[in-house]
């Protein structure tokens, strides 16, 4: 089995290299084909065609971080759920009800954050 695994993931590695090579080849082709003429006006960051105003480092709202934390919690939950989904048929009732409990706790967490207003986009 280990040899088979390494063979399968070698194909993945080769496609990765091929993909990077393809993008680099496309860049190379455009380097040869595309015209180049530098000018000051072209180098200005685009903002609707007018001279840009203010800082480029704009402030971002805190709500993004709340959603990031929620995403982390539920994504890790999903990682636990996938192995369970494969084995729960052959592994008896305890495993099944344990996972039901796990999902129920996280579902309660979702309802709690909903009621607290964390899911509202303000």
């Amino acid at each position: 089995m280990p040899e088979q695994y390494s063979l399968e993931y070698t194909a993945v590695l080769i496609i990765t290299i091929a993909g990077i090579g393809m993008v680099l080849a496309a860049f190379f082709a455009s380097m040869i084909l595309a015209p180049r003429s530098k000018s000051e006006a072209k180098q200005i960051p685009y903002e609707c065609g007018i001279p840009p105003t203010g800082q480029f480092w704009a402030q971002l709202h805190l709500r993004y971080y709340i959603f990031a934390i929620l995403f982390l919690i539920f994504d890790i939950e999903a990682i636990f759920l996938f192995p369970w989904a494969i084995i729960f048929r052959s592994s008896g009732a305890v495993i099944f009800y344990e996972m039901v409990l796990f999902i129920a706790i996280l579902f309660f967490g979702l309802v709690y954050s909903w009621k607290k207003g964390a899911l509202r986009w303000r």
């Binding site: 496309a26 082709a29 455009s30 380097m31 084909l33 595309a34 015209p35 180049r36 003429s37 072209k42 180098q43 200005i44 960051p45 685009y46 480029f56």
Partner: peptide, 11 residues
Amino acid sequence: IMTKEDIVPNG
């Protein structure tokens, strides 16, 4: 798209 200029802005 291949023959368009590739502009890299300042900064």
